[in-house]
Computed example of a mutant assay.
Amino acid sequence: MVWRTLRFLVPAMLVMAGAVVAAEPSTKSDAVGRPVSIDVAPRAFRLDGPRATRQLLVTGHYADGSLRDLTGLAGFQATDPGRLSVDADGLVHGLGDGSTQLIVEVGGRKATTEATVSGIKRIEPVSFRRELMPVLSVAGCSDIRCHGAPSGKDGFRLSLWGFDPEFDFQQLTHDGLGRRTNTLNPDNSLVLNKALSQVPHVGGRRFAPRSHLANLIRTWQSEGLRDDQKPVSLAELTVTPDRRVLKAPAVGQRLAVSAKFSDGRVQDVTRLTTFSSSDIAIASVDRSGRVEFNRQGEVAILCRFMGRLESVRMMHIAEPAAGYAWPNPPEANYVDTHVFAKLKMLNIAPSELCTDEQFVRRLYLDLCGVLPTPGEVRAFLSTGGPDKR
């Protein structure tokens, strides 16, 4: 019977909830290991516009079939360095119009991707809805714990997570007699100085003075506090990878987020996406989309941009305990098949079969929420038959 699997489900959940710490590789060579091959995603991309970026992902493939994110450990070299630059996190910035090949090397393996850069000198105002609103979300300003609360915070209110751009535009440009913004001297604006903690701010410093987020707020103000003339909607939001199982020594995975808008434009929005983890005790995620596991387990990483929410599943499997060996227990039914498959993947041996006394106690607690009476226990223990449990 299906109830027989209780002896496996409960111990499995308890063990999975235990703190099996994820061990950080001690050296770069340990983190890289010996990949059989590497690949870089995307294999070809275009940077179109003066602020366009692209998050690259470098993945190592290993002999045991496992995958590791090697983006932060890889070296990047453009055949034409005047076209683009790549930072330590694998984020590409355009420098000049044209095409180039980008060579990626790590662990003695190489891969290439083709890049085309255009519109570097094009005058393109900061989009209030596609760029500035996400900045307020990434910085936490429109969060429920801050100005996105129903009553706002310290006299300033924004819509929760930027769901009402029209309201937020009015709040930023007209509320408080327009004192929060400054078109003539953006560096002296209250909205920027609060976020930089250059004036007293309960929320503290939200980003660095010369960061991409600060520059967007600064530029939007200098361009005249404009709302988008022809607002576009978000048609599709894609997160890569959408699922990943990491086996020790791998403990982290970088994410890349791409948005497709109603006007057909496709743009990398990784640095404008708000990330959060369903369980920060198991894994955390920073603003750049880097997921870092603290211990074995599985989490959902929530990725939010322009009102759209996508989630990706991430799992980390730690090294098995010393002397571990899968006991290969018999399967009583299809539930056992699935439970055993998950336990085997996690290097967790199922518990031994519980006694009849333990079984009847668990059954009553699970179904009735009370302990069985002594008479009910005796009646169950005296019952025979192959379908007893």
Rank of each mutant, 00 (worst) to 15 (best):
P150A: 12
S151W: 12
H147M: 05
R109Q: 06
A349Y: 05
L213H: 07
R145K: 10
D97E: 04
P320K: 04
A52M: 08
S66F: 12
Q170C: 10
H316V: 02
G140C: 06
S311T: 15
L14V: 14
R226C: 11
M314R: 04
R378L: 15
S26M: 08
A250Q: 01
P231G: 08
S258L: 12
L6A: 14
T238M: 09
P11T: 12
D164R: 09
L132A: 00
R129A: 14
E114N: 12
T112R: 06
D356L: 10
D80I: 13
G178R: 02
L302F: 15
G375T: 15
D268Q: 00
I123A: 15
E331L: 15
D228Q: 03
G140V: 06
H174I: 14
G176I: 11
Q267A: 11
V269L: 05
F167H: 09
L346S: 13
N215C: 11
Y364N: 04
R179V: 15
G18N: 09
S277I: 03
G96V: 08
T273E: 01
P329H: 03
G98Q: 00
G60M: 01
A325G: 05
V117N: 06
V32R: 00
P350W: 14
Y334T: 14
T181H: 04
H174P: 06
S85K: 01
M306I: 11
P134A: 08
V199N: 03
K342H: 13
L196E: 04
E131W: 05
S197L: 14
L70T: 05
R254S: 15
N182D: 14
V245H: 05
E124Y: 13
D242C: 09
M306Y: 07
A115R: 00
E105V: 02
V299D: 06
L365F: 15
P231E: 10
A31W: 02
R362T: 12
A283R: 03
R206P: 05
P25N: 05
R51Q: 11
D187C: 09
H201V: 01
Q55S: 08
R206G: 13
P50T: 00
K28F: 11
Q170E: 11
G90E: 01
S127A: 04
R304P: 03
Q229N: 14
L190G: 10
I317H: 10
S159E: 03
T100H: 02
V377P: 07
V335G: 09
V335S: 11
K260E: 02
G18L: 09
L177R: 06
A300Q: 13
C146N: 13
G152R: 00
V138K: 07
T53K: 01
L367D: 11
R54E: 15
R361Y: 11
G369H: 07
S262P: 04
D387C: 13
I301W: 00
I123D: 15
L216E: 02
R304M: 08
S351C: 06
G162K: 04
L216H: 02
L84N: 08
A44C: 10
P50K: 02
A208P: 03
G90C: 03
V232T: 09
L172K: 06
S258I: 10
R210Q: 14
V285N: 01
D80G: 12
A208L: 12
A318P: 09
